[in-house]
Design a protein around this nucleic acid. Structure first.
Lengths: 253, 253
DNA sequence: GTGTTTATCGTCAGGCAGACGACTATGATC
DNA sequence: GATCATAGTCGTCTGCCTGACGATAAACAC
């Protein structure tokens, strides 16, 4: 067969789904939207949508991110911009039965964002919220208001689990944890990011030595914080280094 | 718009492309096929093909791998089988202009295989060969027979570069380097795999201490090799461990 | 002031990696 | 057979990094 005969290959729908992670109140949270239509009507799902005819995959992901959160994705090569989130491709899911209606291949992306005031319910989503990943992943967990959480729609639980695992491993050997922080942050805030993502407690003294001793990870801005209780902390910005060598190892793992 | 109206989303062709890597004569080599049709007729490309209507992405990749090389992919959960290769999803490439004829989204996969007798020219490919990745990646490099190597077709140079980088980093913290080796191998053979993939020289003594001291990485089979020149070496099989902790760090990097 | 909280600096022991010496066991060469 | 070249294996030493943890500093609450 000619591989270029338009009738010789099956047509697919291609979507992007987003795993948008942030740290809120010491917990790793993901953005979830409630589905307004069948299948899985009323169930929580990851935000996403169809890739347009003349749109790159990363552009589609960035567009969905803006629609859902108002966040601008910045690519790693450009300088950090305000309100920017890290965005990268995660994996592609194409089980023939993952969508009961038709053949859909979804290119999942992972976004890491600082804590946002509130999920913006604009765009397609009828309602959106931040939910702790544990509650979303473990069927039978309870949401914030106490309602029983049903499993995520489609294969989104698997996608979310893969995204969380990617984030957990990637902050080990890269400076990506700063993507969870505002433009200026303290060592303690960065440590609480690691603790929330990994779900462990870290020694503040060893953590401080490690991150301040890694060249290019943090650059002091000169300012300090006045915060409730405790000695004021030095403020830092993310440095130019993207890879941590040696890595920040999580306990046990 | 309704996201489920079949006319509401653009149709895509979905393919899988394969980065098949092996180590031959101390060099990291990739499988390349020569294109028999335009566009890029006569140029080298990565093997690949369309995903079938009712076929999972990984199944399509495994099918293409068999067609091109005769290798059976084994998923990481099942026990290692003879003539098996490691296969994993790499990334998805969907630039609207990556194929001049139509909109094609390609889900690239990475395969790692032991050195094979010869590329099997069966299947669609008119001709196939193993080529050092350096020759394939650097435009203007020269092939084995001295002919000038043209750049790979489509965005396959980028895909190959991403696959090579994935392999280079993954053998750091996993036992995947054994996928380049036959079922039984010596520490020296494994070291030469690392040296070929990374393009560096490693200290044989420190390497031996590291790999034999990592629990679950290697299990001795009891046998030894009779090889030309040098003291016979102990034979090993790949152990059950998949993650190396602490990792095998490549020099500098 | 006293207590609490958080940030930051220091110290010490253990583990691991790089550099490298030494010994072993084979084939090749004279 | 002696010697050499080659490759594998075992040890030693040193420096760096990390985990455990003591001590000090600077804010707030009472």
């Amino acid at each position: 067969m000619s591989p270029y005969d338009p009738s010789a290959f099956p047509p697919f729908a291609v979507t992007v789904d987003l795993v948008v992670l942030t740290v809120r109140r010491h917990a790793l949270c993901a953005l979830a939207v409630r589905r307004g239509e069948p299948p899985f009507q009323g169930r929580w799902a990851l935000p996403g949508g169809f890739v347009r005819a003349d749109e790159d995959l990363s552009a589609a992901a960035a567009r969905e991110l803006v629609e859902e959160t108002g966040l601008c994705a910045h690519d790693p090569d450009s300088p950090v911009q305000a309100n920017g989130a890290h965005l990268e491709q995660l994996a592609t899911y194409g089980d023939p039965k993952r969508d009961p209606r038709m053949r859909v291949v979804s290119v999942a992306h992972l976004a890491l964002a600082p804590d946002l005031p509130a999920p913006r319910p604009g765009g397609d989503a009828h309602s959106a919220r931040w939910a702790p990943v544990e509650a979303l992943l473990h069927q039978g967990g309870y949401g914030r208001e106490g309602e029983q959480a049903a499993p995520l729609a489609f294969d989104h639980a698997q996608i979310l689990a893969d995204g969380v695992e990617r984030a957990r491993s990637k902050i080990e050997y890269s400076s990506l944890a700063t993507a969870f922080c505002p433009p200026e942050f303290t060592v303690g805030e960065l440590r609480r990011v690691y603790e929330a993502v990994w779900g462990v407690a870290l020694d503040p003294r060893n953590f401080h030595r490690k991150v301040t001793g890694t060249p290019g990870f943090l650059v002091p801005t000169g300012g300090t914080t006045t915060r409730q209780g405790g000695r004021p902390a030095q403020l830092f910005r993310a440095g130019g280094a993207t890879l941590l060598n040696p890595p920040m190892l999580r306990p046990d793992a």
